[in-house]
């Protein structure tokens, strides 16, 4: 059967890149009132074939644990989710980050997941062939890799949240946008959810 497998990976130690993004957005770019937090993940969205979702999950999990191009358990937490049977393999918690700086946020808060990848798919085929060379019991037929920025933003609704995140993310000019350069990167929202404020 065909399934979709998504691999999320984050650093165990303080993510200095996310921290710098937070500081730049709040201190230099005027988002101190809107921004409640920044988290960053490496992300792989795969299409895969296998007998069933469980088999696909098991096969991919075995390989990504072994291959430091995907995860290195000494420095990463990861979560692999395979659609179809809701199968999941994970190490550690992906969301909680005690090192993570966050502002005083009241009101409604939305977590927007922004998937940023390189135009033309950069290393995607390399990742796919790397996995397929060793996968037993599954085959990866599609691959998109990049990073996901999980931006916690204060907004009145999901739409406003997405608009604000896009404003923070897409670099249009010296004053506007930080997280991606649209001349070689693309972005897509892969999830927006309201979360409990503090």
């Amino acid at each position: 059967m065909k399934t979709e497998a998504k691999l999320w990976v984050r650093l165990k130690v303080t993510d200095l890149v996310a921290q710098t993004a937070w500081m730049t957005l709040t201190e230099k770019m005027g988002f101190a009132d809107d921004l409640c937090g920044v988290l960053r993940y490496s992300y792989w969205a795969m299409e895969a074939e296998g007998e069933n979702a469980g088999a696909v999950c098991e096969a991919i999990d075995r390989e990504i644990r072994m291959d430091s191009a995907f995860t290195n358990q000494n420095k990463h937490f990861y979560c692999l989710v395979v659609s179809g049977g809701g199968d999941k393999a994970a190490s550690g918690d992906l969301m909680i980050d005690r090192d993570f700086p966050r502002g005083e946020c009241g009101g409604r808060i939305f977590a927007c997941d922004l998937f940023v990848s390189e135009q033309g798919g950069g290393k995607d085929s390399g990742y796919a062939s790397r996995l397929n060379a060793r996968l037993a019991g599954a085959k990866v037929t599609g691959m998109k890799s990049g990073e996901v920025w999980r931006i916690l933003v204060r907004a009145e609704g999901a739409e406003e949240a997405a608009r604000k995140v896009e404003e923070m993310a897409v670099t249009r000019s010296r004053q506007h946008g930080l997280l991606l350069n649209p001349h070689y990167q693309t972005f897509e929202f892969i999830g927006t959810a309201e979360i409990d404020g503090q």
Partner: peptide, 27 residues
């Protein structure tokens, strides 16, 4: 380039990128 000084056709608009190298047999 990230400041939009270059190419500067539209003032301070980021119209270019310096993207990761694409090379034969290496990255």
């Amino acid at each position: 380039v990230e400041s939009g000084f270059i190419p500067g056709i539209h003032w301070e608009s980021v119209d270019l990128a310096l993207a990761p190298n694409v090379m034969e047999d290496r990255d």
